[in-house]
Design a protein around this nucleic acid. Structure first.
Lengths: 134, 134
DNA sequence: GCTTGACCTTCCAATAATGGGAACCCGCAG
DNA sequence: CTGCGGGTTCCCATTATTGGAAGGTCAAGC
């Protein structure tokens, strides 16, 4: 599949790992440019487009938001980008991940401690409910 | 504030830590029963209602979903509940938390490794973008 | 008694990302 | 001609929460 291969959205989806639904969605919100259309109004994609879609999928799989991916795409396409900007985006995202992880771990810790003290049998008394009830 | 104190939604919000918006929402989706209304159609809440709202807020702060909270409320209100059911809910939620934490940590690990190898200066080459580009 | 401001009401919309489905069009094979 | 496997658009649902508009109500102050 070279850069001039032209394919329908289904093929582009298969080759990129991004669902056809999402490809249309990304176009609609402007993350990717509007695809050119065939005579019968079908969207057509090139190998380069598929490459972009893979980039997006990879970024999504690392938890980047669409807005962040917009930035990343811009930097990717810019041959004169300073890698510092990319790194800054990555570090900011890592910080967000850390914040979310901390939140979840705090929940887990609290809940784990409560569950550890719950008999978990047929008796009704339960420190978990007691805590929730404040 | 005893169990017979009657208050408007704003007060109930202040006392429970749940926003008035969310109280209305919880009523709408059936998580809490429809509040009784004053002559002028204002929702009225008792201290007991506020207690329930606090319970909900606490459960939300531990990451329980609304559906899970529905279950928890049912168990809380049931004097003859088996604590095993509560514990099962808690453990299931802990498992979900674990799964989410693992996902986020995998992202963080990958991204951290990539960032570590990025110069982060004015030069354009960047292993982060290289990885995203596949 | 009237105005003002704080409060309440309902309804509608938006967020982030994705999936599901209906109704309809297109092209090819049997 | 029919059927199937694409494609198209449009609307809806998810999860929890927030924002706002347009309007009714209540208490205080003048």
């Amino acid at each position: 599949m070279d850069m001039t291969t032209s394919m329908n959205i289904g093929e582009a989806a298969r080759h990129s790992g991004v669902s056809a639904k999402m490809i249309r969605h990304y176009e609609e919100i402007g993350l990717i440019p509007k695809a050119s259309r065939s005579y019968s109004n079908y969207r057509t994609y090139s190998g380069k487009d598929v490459h972009t879609l893979r980039f997006i999928r990879q970024a999504r799989s690392l938890g980047f938001s669409i807005k962040q991916i917009e930035q990343l795409l811009g930097l990717w396409r810019n041959q004169r980008r300073p890698s510092g900007k990319v790194k800054a985006l990555a570090l900011a995202h890592i910080a967000e991940l850390d914040a979310r992880i901390s939140e979840l771990e705090a929940m887990k810790r609290t809940l784990g401690a409560l569950a550890a003290h719950c008999h978990g049998d047929d008796r009704p008394e339960c420190p978990i409910l007691d805590r929730l009830a404040g």
